[in-house]
């Protein structure tokens, strides 16, 4: 209590941001598994070391599950900061589960690139960029494929794992194909013939536990994936899992960082967000896990940057997909997949 009071006095008196005072603790809700491990080491640990603020990491599962937790705790939030997919974050923002925020509250937002600021709308900005990649079994698929077209090759029939909509990987793949065929990612009609053609070659439209495991178990040779994890699994498997940013292009998957409405540790939560978006934290996490940095001032090695979509040679391949627009298209895309693609994939 006294500390809060002191902080408040300090804020008024000296005009510094409200989160300047250290100590205390916050609860962060984000993805479990390797995201948690790497984020803890590269972002959270330095923050705690510098400020003495403990960070409780709450394994959130999927973004939808995280939204569920926020909804359930609306009256009495236990979470202070949440990192989740931009489409789900937009719902949380619209429902008032997370605070509207801008550079006046969180000055570091000014350093986030334009796309990252716009992605979060009125709420928290982008904290990571990821993008859709094609992953493949480098033992069975040679030479290394550069195009999605490799999945259509007859010799790999039955060895392809796709994630069908409403999963966002399925939506992303559809958008990329639509863009490649027609120049407009919204034009699903252009993607459908290609997908119908591929459908009989697909082993599963719902890879479990994930495409990487299916490749390592020799179940499939191709899958779609998100770059950051794909890069890590590629390293872990000594290159067995190959990763390609297809020449047809790719789309971003964006995670935003948000301040939970009515957070009990608002000042420390803002401090953590400032740190998470700082050039240092952004660069460290990119070096470790190959998520693209959203802070335009982040200094990333050429080697690490080259494995993200932000590398100069990859930049031009990123299709400007607007996820809030995609949310409105999702239901009809889902229907068409079910009726035209999956139905044509009789196995």
């Amino acid at each position: 209590m006294r500390r809060t009071l002191l902080a408040a006095i300090a804020t008024i008196g000296l005009g510094v941001p409200a989160y300047a005072q250290g100590g205390g603790q916050i609860t962060l809700q984000a993805y479990a598994g390797i995201f948690r491990d790497n984020y803890t080491q590269t972002v959270i640990a330095p923050f705690t070391a510098a400020r003495g603020t403990a960070v409780q990491y709450h394994d959130g599962g999927t973004s939808a599950a995280m939204l569920g937790t926020l909804r359930a705790q609306r009256a009495d939030p236990q979470i202070d900061v949440v990192i989740m997919d931009v489409t789900t974050a937009a719902i949380a923002c619209a429902e008032g589960l997370v605070e509207k925020i801008d550079a006046s509250t969180l000055p570091v937002i000014g350093d986030v690139d334009q796309q990252g600021r716009e992605a979060g709308g009125e709420c928290g900005p982008a904290v990571t960029y990821d993008h859709l990649v094609m992953v493949y079994d480098s033992r069975a698929v040679t030479p290394a494929p550069t195009s999605l077209a490799a999945m259509w090759a007859p010799e790999h029939r039955g060895r392809v794992a796709l994630s069908a909509p409403p999963n966002i990987q399925g939506l992303a793949l559809t958008a990329i194909l639509a863009h490649a065929e027609s120049g407009n990612w919204r034009n699903i009609g252009a993607a459908m013939p290609k997908l119908r053609e591929l459908a009989p070659a697909v082993q599963t439209f719902d890879p479990n536990p994930d495409g990487y495991t299916l490749i390592l178990n020799n179940q499939v040779r191709f899958a779609t994936g998100w770059n950051a994890r794909a890069q890590l699994y590629s390293d872990q498997s000594q290159g067995r899992i190959g990763v390609t940013l297809p020449q047809e292009g790719t789309v971003f998957q964006i995670n935003t960082i948000n301040l939970v409405a009515n957070s009990k540790n608002r000042a420390q939560a803002l401090a953590f967000m400032a740190h998470a978006l700082s050039p240092e934290a952004q660069a460290a996490f990119t070096e470790r896990m190959f998520y693209g940095p959203t802070n335009s001032r982040a200094q990333v090695s050429a080697a690490a940057l080259g494995r993200t979509a932000l590398a100069p040679e990859n930049r031009s391949r990123v299709i400007g997909l607007n996820w809030s627009e995609m949310v409105r298209l999702r239901d009809s895309w889902n229907q068409r997949w079910r009726r035209e693609v999956i139905a044509a994939s009789s196995r």
Binding site: L162, S163, Q203, T204, F205, D206, R338, I342, S345, R347
Partner: peptide, 10 residues
């Protein structure tokens, strides 16, 4: 259905 349907069984 989820794990053995390959996304084909609704």
């Amino acid at each position: 259905p989820r794990l053995m349907g390959g996304g084909r069984v609704f």
